[in-house]
């Protein structure tokens, strides 16, 4: 009898582990946050929208978690506060925000990300936001350029290298010229 129970337990465990189930799909809490993100802010009569690239990334991330209604409530509240803040700046677009106002906006993003134990940081060009998980991996990438560079890769190092080489060659040439001048220079005695 004990052996039979053990066997049944093993079979059940194998069945459960064999059928992987993921925290997938958009639950009602996540849907409410996405809907809130799609609602524009009013900046001096202009409707300002969160770029669809950010909303899409949020949706993709929500497919990997199960947000609770409490978390959604907090995030939606923060989004509402951010919208009110933008309306209160008296500016007509995000681009017109000064450094202090951008910092405030970043603080709202950090607070919203923090509800899900994520952190927000300025993107590589400081104009966009990156959301990062606890292990440092990007959850929402800064979306300055949707279309990427897909030719030979570029970095600053080759520019520096070529520039230094050019300067060294010029110095060497000048050095050779000066040495040659000194070897063969004579001053006529008056």
């Amino acid at each position: 009898m004990k052996k039979l129970i053990s066997l049944i337990a093993v079979i059940l465990i194998v069945c459960v582990s064999f059928t992987a189930v993921y925290a997938a799909g958009i639950n009602s809490s996540e849907a409410s946050v996405l809907g809130n993100m799609r609602t524009p802010a009013n900046m001096k009569g202009n409707s300002v929208y969160v770029p669809s690239s950010y909303i899409n990334q949020a949706e993709s991330y929500f497919n990997t978690i199960d947000m609770t209604s409490a978390q959604a409530g907090k995030i939606n509240s923060i989004i509402g506060q951010a919208r009110s803040f933008l309306a209160g700046t008296g500016k007509s677009s995000i681009k017109e925000l000064n450094a202090s106002e951008r910092k405030t906006l970043m603080n709202y993003a950090s607070a919203a990300a923090g509800v899900l134990n994520l952190s927000a940081a300025a993107g590589s060009d400081t104009k966009n936001i990156k959301i990062i998980s606890g292990n440092g991996s990007a959850v929402v990438d800064d979306s300055t350029n949707v279309i990427k560079k897909t030719g030979a890769e570029q970095s600053a190092l080759p520019y520096i290298g070529v520039s230094v080489l050019a300067c060294l060659l010029t110095l060497s040439a000048a050095g050779v010229l000066i040495s040659g001048k000194k070897s063969f220079a004579y001053e006529e005695e008056k």
């Binding site: 992987a20 993921y22 997938a24 799909g25 497919n63 990997t64 991996s137 959850v139």
Partner: peptide, 11 residues
């Protein structure tokens, strides 16, 4: 079904 899909994260 979405519950059977392991949605990838970045990288």
């Amino acid at each position: 079904d979405a519950s059977k899909v392991e949605f990838p994260t970045i990288n």
